[in-house]
């Protein structure tokens, strides 16, 4: 009898977590998926309307604004973080004496809440008191930097703040990658007469492929989920200028009381993330199993 019980204990221990996740993640996804096919407004309704919400969603200029902004924000955020992260990592990998001091400085923004980051940049970029005001005080009267108030430019201020927050993390990923490169490969290249620049361009950077991939997945999924930063920095404004899918979903569901449309936008966000994450996790887990 004791033997039998022992056999079940491991599964008993694991099962609460597993069933919590089944219910609260997958069950909830199914529920939201179902709501996206109903005419739910302020409260959930179970009245099936087919793809009506999706059709309406893709006709909304507001949603197109959010998707376009995500494309602009996501692309710039990923590209700049990657380039900056790689650049700083390479510079930091040159036997820098103060590395122990510099590295934590580059990385600390990652420990902050996006709300804090948003607050700091909101006032720093504010023309009334921030960088523009400061330049005027210093005598540069014609200096203008009012992107945060400008409908066409405001989305780029979200990029500035988000890059500040995440690029140090990408740097740390690349630095770990650089430290993992076999020194013999580099020595061999140098014996062959390759310049350091060429060694980086032709040998070391191509070796960083897995890091590029990880960084892309991390950053892409952070970009699609981006919510807090926009709320704290611009509140989605001016107008709808910095609206992203995450803020769109929230305002349609809870402020405008169009829950069916909110649910359909959440489903689209999930499809975007899963189409990036699932292939990645699948290949990682398979590689892990082979190891």
């Amino acid at each position: 009898m004791k033997e039998r019980l022992q056999d079940y204990i491991p599964k008993l221990v694991l099962s609460p977590s597993f069933f919590l996740i089944l219910l609260f993640v997958y069950g909830f996804i199914a529920y939201t998926g179902y709501l996206s096919f109903t005419d739910s407004r302020i409260l959930p309704s179970y009245n099936w309307v087919g793809f009506e919400n999706y059709e309406r969603l893709w006709k909304l200029p507001h949603w197109w604004r959010a998707i376009t902004n995500l494309a602009i924000f996501g692309t710039l955020y990923i590209v700049i973080c990657t380039v900056l992260g790689l650049l700083v990592a390479i510079l930091l990998d040159q036997k820098i004496r103060a590395e122990g001091v510099l590295r934590p400085i580059y990385l600390y923004p990652m420990a902050l809440s996006f709300i804090v980051t948003g607050t700091a940049w909101k006032w720093f970029l504010d023309p009334g008191i921030g960088i523009e005001h400061t330049m005027h005080q210093w005598g540069w009267e014609s200096f203008a930097f009012d992107w945060i108030k400008d409908r066409r430019m405001a989305i780029y201020t979200v990029v500035i703040a988000a890059v500040w927050q995440s690029s140090g993390f990408v740097m740390a990923m690349f630095l770990a990658g650089l430290r993992g490169v076999d020194p013999d490969i580099i020595k061999a290249a140098q014996i062959d007469g390759a310049s350091t620049f060429t060694t980086y361009r032709r040998i070391i950077i191509p070796l960083m492929r897995p890091v590029f991939l990880s960084a892309f997945v991390v950053l892409a999924h952070l970009a699609i989920k981006a919510y807090d930063l926009v709320i704290a920095l611009t509140g989605g404004g001016p107008g709808q200028a910095t609206e992203l899918p995450a803020t769109f979903m929230y305002s349609y569901t809870f402020t405008r009381n169009l829950m069916g449309i909110g649910a359909s936008s959440a489903i689209i966000m999930m499809i975007m993330i899963f189409s990036i994450i699932i292939p990645y996790l699948y290949s990682e887990l398979r590689a892990g199993a082979r190891r």
């Binding site: 597993f18 609260f24 569901t253 993330i273």
Partner: peptide
């Protein structure tokens, strides 16, 4: 089981807001 739990890390939380509020 592990795969199911791992994938759960990456969902956009917007997708659980409505049912979670009810739950």
């Amino acid at each position: 089981v592990f795969g199911v739990m791992l994938l759960a890390c990456f969902i956009p939380f917007q997708i659980v807001l409505i049912p979670m509020a009810r739950m």
